[in-house]
Nucleic acid binder design. Structure first.
Length: 645
RNA sequence: AGCGGGGUAGAGCAGCCUGGAGUGCUCGCGAGGCCCAUAACCUCGAGGUCGUGUGGUUCAAAUCCCACCCCCGCUACCA
């Protein structure tokens, strides 16, 4: 007998410096659906998901909250586990990278790479700001100075461990086109390799306190990305032999580079087989609509799951395109629940089960379903769960048409009722990876099992009882609204980032990132700010230091090197007009500013912004999330240069 | 500016990879049918220069290639 085929599938592991957001839920749902489909195909499936707990940023985030790092990650990890449970995610293992077993595997693999002579000690040279205790890339500097301290950083070198990524350039270029899907994501990476080439990457962090020790050199920690990627192997534990290589890694587009390039290179070096497919999904765009942005609606998946059944939430994700970015909103969920789940599927099951209860079923040749099954199978082969779902719902539509045409309530045609019931069986089994609980309910009503075998054989006739309501309709008014204050802006930003870590710091492979300790500084800055707030008041003397004047905007030009900035030419009643840079481009058209009088700060120290020196500042009123910006103007006409007191 | 996504009916989308009559889906609108079902379901209809190019390739372009315009996201910038 042939050995049962295995199927190993993973999600990316999530970065736990904040609570889970819809993107995480989206990825888990897609991956879970593929895993369940493979199980339905009778493959021996292993599915892992989990969290990346070793990132340096956790240290800072924890300190900010005033809790220990361990406690901080435990709390957030629990939220991710809760998400999986409530979403009905069927993972076989939830990985935590702080687990001892994980660290052991990381060390083993690094040892293999070292033996291959792909690790060497070199010197990292970078621009170091003493105040921040961190390295900056030239791109991050403003005017050649540290953005926090406005001081020029010094050139510093330190010893570090490097991985010979460059060695694998040719091999990678060869494998990426077949490994990475969709092709645009493969091209993206190929282009970058061809353009910039691959340089060796620094894989150690000196003096970091959080993370996995570098083998044989406790002065260093392993760079978090290396540690994170290895979860795909460490998560298998003793099952490694059985399941590796993975069939699929599902990841978000933001972390494509790490999975397309660094991960296979590490595996090649360590002598592992490569995973078969990297499925790179797009993002759910939750503030695509301006309306929800101004309302401050942040869609929290755990809140959604409290309000709506898991299957409804899952369905709302799974209808979104896997590969493209999609706008996602709670309205969308409600519309889909009502018109697709309740009206189409739910209502169909309800009608057929009621009619079957009163009239019974007579076994005849079922409807043709091979085509639908083949189409769904094909969609799964290319990991387009959204297409698979659309195909199933087109089939459900055809059942609705059939019942309407055949009018079994009039004809009492139990043969048609059988065909409908058999069709529902097919739909329910095909839907079981998407909405497991719903399929289970339908299976109970019509007496079948959610197996491959029953998918391919006609429905056995049983006495049917009317089904209970599958999907309740949702009132639009009941929509969840979360006030902006629930989430700090900063948090939302991090959450929108791809699960593991930031990309910018590895852009050129010259990585000692700015993730290392800026905390000392940041904390003091924070304290100062807080003190200022507590004091809250300034003296008149302080106020009088600010020189406010009326200015006439004589000209408005877009900043040549920045999207959000205008360069204003302003008459402040002086001999020559001043150049003032203002961030108004998203809020005003040039013609609405030109010729107007507005209020300016006249004695602000000049600053160069993206290459243009600004000599003052325009005053504007701003709402909470900066979405609405209004310039201040004198109520009546008054000459430029007039003072404001 | 860098990277990414998009522009298809009043709104939101699919179709594009692999070219074959503007085909389809959800919402909305108009008319009708049905009375089994969750006020659901079914049929028909109105509504389109498929962003622009009187650009290229082709017998044939929403689809492939080129140029341009606009929108959105992330990052930078809001003195």
């Amino acid at each position: 007998m042939a050995k049962q085929q295995t199927f190993y599938i993973t999600t990316a592991i999530d970065y736990v410096n904040a609570k889970p957001h819809v993107g995480h839920a989206f990825e888990k749902t897609i991956t879970d659906t593929i895993a369940r489909w493979q199980r339905l195909q009778e493959k021996d499936t292993y599915f892992t998901t989990g969290v990346d707990e070793n990132a340096q940023k956790n240290v800072q985030a924890a300190e900010k909250k005033g809790v220990s790092v361990k406690k901080f990650i435990d709390t957030n990890t629990a939220a991710f586990q809760e998400l999986c449970a409530k979403l009905n995610v069927s993972e076989d293992k939830f990985i935590r990278t702080t687990a001892k077993e994980h660290a052991i595997v990381v060390k083993e693999i690094l040892e293999k790479i070292r033996k291959k002579k792909d690790i060497y000690k070199g010197t990292y040279e970078g621009l170091y700001c003493v105040g921040c205790e961190t390295y900056y890339t030239e791109k991050e500097l403003i005017d050649g100075k540290c953005p926090e301290h406005k001081k020029e950083p010094e050139k510093r070198t330190e010893e570090a461990y490097f991985f010979k990524l460059s060695k694998y350039e040719k091999q990678l270029l060869k494998i990426i086109p077949t490994y990475v899907t969709p092709p645009t994501r493969a091209n993206e990476v190929m282009e970058r390799i061809k353009k910039d080439g691959l340089t060796d990457i620094c894989i150690s962090r000196k003096g970091a306190q959080w993370g996995i020790d570098f083998p044989n050199d406790p002065e260093y920690k392993v760079w978090v990305w290396i540690d994170a990627l290895i979860n795909y192997i460490s998560g298998l534990e003793e099952k490694e032999k059985k399941y590796w290589p993975a069939q699929v890694h599902v990841i978000g587009k933001g972390i494509n580079w790490f999975h397309s390039v660094i991960w296979p290179a590490l595996l090649l070096s360590a002598g592992y087989k490569l995973p078969e497919k990297l499925v790179v999904h797009g993002y759910l765009n939750t503030d695509g609509e301006k309306i929800s942005k101004s309302l401050g609606n942040v869609i929290d998946p755990l809140t959604l799951l409290e309000k709506y059944p898991a299957d409804v939430v899952r369905y709302s994700f799974l209808r979104c395109s896997v590969f493209e970015d999609t706008d996602y909103s709670e309205e969308l969920l409600i519309t889909r629940n009502n018109s697709e789940l309740a009206n189409k599927l739910g209502n169909l099951v309800s009608r057929v089960s009621t009619l079957a209860e009163t009239h019974g079923l007579t076994k005849v040749k079922p409807l043709e379903t091979k085509k639908v099954i083949a189409q769904v199978t094909r969609a799964f082969e290319s990991y387009q769960t959204d297409k698979a779902l659309a195909t199933i719902f087109a089939f459900i539509d055809s059942l609705n048409e059939l019942i309407q045409k055949a009018k079994p309530w009039e004809t009492k045609d139990t043969k048609v009722l059988y065909q409908l019931a058999d069709g529902i069986k097919t739909a329910a089994i095909l839907l079981s990876p998407f909405m497991p609980a719903t399929s289970e309910k339908i299976a109970t009503t019509f007496h079948f099992e959610l197996t491959k075998k029953q998918l391919e054989s006609p429905l056995a006739v049983h006495k049917i009882k009317k089904a209970s309501i599958l999907f309740q309709k949702i009132d639009m008014v009941n929509k969840t609204t979360i006030s902006p204050s629930t989430y700090k802006k900063e948090e939302v930003k991090t959450m929108k980032n791809p699960p593991i870590s930031s990309i910018s710091d590895t852009r050129k492979g010259d990585v000692i990132s700015n993730t290392s300790d800026t905390k000392a500084h940041k904390q003091t800055a924070h304290e100062i700010k807080r003190e200022e707030k507590q004091a809250g008041k300034i003296s008149y003397d302080d106020f009088s230091k600010v020189e406010l004047k009326v200015g006439l905007i004589k000209d408005v030009k877009p900043h040549p090197n920045a999207d959000k900035l205008y360069v204003l030419t302003v008459d402040l009643g002086e001999d020559t007009p001043r150049t003032i840079v203002a961030g108004l481009r998203n809020h005003y058209q040039p013609e609405h500013l030109k010729g107007k009088k507005a209020l300016f700060v006249a004695n602000l120290a000049p600053v160069t912004l993206r290459g243009i020196e600004s000599n003052g500042m325009i005053l504007a009123a701003v709402n909470d999330d900066d979405s609405h910006v209004v310039i201040l103007q004198p109520e009546q006409d008054i000459p430029p240069g007039s003072k404001i007191r």
